[in-house]
Computed example of a mutant assay.
Amino acid sequence: MLGAAVAAGPGQPLPIAEDAYYSTVFEVSQLCDIAQLPDPVFASAEKRTKLRILGRGELHYFEAGNDDQGRDIGFELSTAAYFCMAGLNAQLDAPADVAVVREDGRSFQIECKRPRRVASLAANLMRAYEQIADHRHEAPDAIAMVAIDLTLVWNPEFRPIRYPTMLAAANAFDEHLYNFELKNRQAYVDARHNSRGAELMSGRLYKFQGMFHLDDGTTNVGTFWRIAMTQAEQDSPTGQEIRRVFERLVEND
Rank of each mutant, 00 (worst) to 15 (best):
L2T: 09
A4L: 13
A7F: 10
G11L: 09
Y22V: 06
S23N: 09
S23H: 05
Q30G: 04
C32Q: 15
C32S: 12
K47N: 09
L54P: 02
G55T: 05
R56Y: 02
G57N: 08
R71Y: 12
D72V: 04
I73N: 04
L77S: 04
S78M: 12
A81P: 03
Y82N: 14
M85D: 06
A96D: 12
R102E: 10
G105R: 07
C112S: 03
P115W: 02
L121Y: 13
A123D: 15
A123P: 02
L125T: 08
L125W: 12
R127S: 12
R127I: 01
E130F: 10
A133E: 09
A147H: 06
D149I: 02
L152Q: 14
N155K: 07
E157S: 13
R162A: 10
R162F: 13
L167W: 07
A170E: 09
A172M: 01
E175N: 15
H176V: 04
Q186Y: 13
A187D: 05
A191Y: 07
R196I: 04
R204P: 00
L205Y: 11
K207A: 13
K207L: 12
K207V: 05
F208V: 13
D215K: 11
G217D: 02
T219V: 12
T223G: 01
F224D: 03
M229Q: 15
Q231Y: 13
A232G: 00
Q240M: 11
I242K: 03
R243T: 05
R244Y: 01
